[in-house]
């Protein structure tokens, strides 16, 4: 376990583009939204939450497309499936790393993003909590799509098509949690739902991802 984790960390540390590029895209998207319209002074608080979640979803789609691609091409993935004691564990670690480099990072940066999006200050804590609870679902369900599309040289659009409809509840509850906080209404239910969706995703995601990778490996 320790050895497996160390490698994931080494790869992440040496492949900084994988962390930095999505992050740069994230801030670029914030700027585009701000310039493109819906963040006028009087509507900022109203749309800020939705824009935040949309950007997180899109950034994740870009990052997920690369999740298994290198290992699929160089043969590491087939070794995981045929050689590992528990392939499931290696794959879960990999998904965890993807979450660290997107979901967790965005959660930590949320105060900054809230500021840029013009959300009122008292929303920050809620936004962080909502992101922390909801973003694992994006990584876990997204990984299933990544596993199924890794065999196609241009899998990106198909990945989004497969995964984004399943992530609609995350968008709805995540946005709603922030909006309720802005309006000063209690939002416990939304947060519970986000946690619940992530739990469901944790239950089915890694198994489905492993199954999806087994399918994709046979396309080689």
């Amino acid at each position: 376990m320790g050895g497996l984790l160390r490698r994931e960390w080494q790869v992440l540390a040496r492949n900084r583009a994988q962390v930095i590029n999505p992050l740069a895209f994230l801030f670029l998207a914030v700027m585009l939204f701000a310039v493109g319209g819906p963040l006028e002074d009087n509507t900022r608080a109203q749309y800020g939450g939705a824009v935040l979640w949309l950007i997180v979803l899109l950034t994740n789609m870009l990052s997920l497309d690369a999740l298994f691609r290198r290992d699929y091409d160089n043969g590491v993935l087939e070794q995981v499936v045929c050689g590992a004691d528990v392939p499931f564990l290696v794959i879960l670690l990999r998904i965890g790393m993807q979450w660290l480099s997107t979901g967790a990072l965005v959660t930590l940066l949320a105060p900054f993003l809230c500021l840029l999006l013009g959300l009122p200050g008292h929303v920050t804590a809620t936004a962080m909590l909502a992101l922390a609870l909801g973003s694992p679902a994006i990584s876990l369900l997204g990984a299933v799509g990544a596993a199924l599309t890794v065999g196609f040289s241009r899998g990106g659009i198909l990945l989004g098509l497969l995964v984004l409809p399943l992530l609609l509840p995350v968008l709805i509850f995540g946005t709603s949690a922030i909006n309720q906080e802005v309006a000063g209404i209690t939002n416990n239910a939304q947060l519970y739902w986000l946690g619940f969706i992530s739990m469901v995703a944790l239950t089915i995601g890694p198994f489905a991802t492993t199954a999806g990778l087994r399918i994709s490996l046979q396309m080689q």
């Binding site: 199924l148 497969l162 399943l166 609609l168 509840p169 969706i197 489905a208 199954a211 399918i215």
Partner: peptide, 18 residues
């Protein structure tokens, strides 16, 4: 088959959230 199964599991959550 895999995608249809995952979709089916998620449909109740999606409907409820919508």
């Amino acid at each position: 088959a895999l995608v249809a199964m995952i979709g089916t599991i998620n449909i109740p959550i999606i409907k409820y959230s919508v």
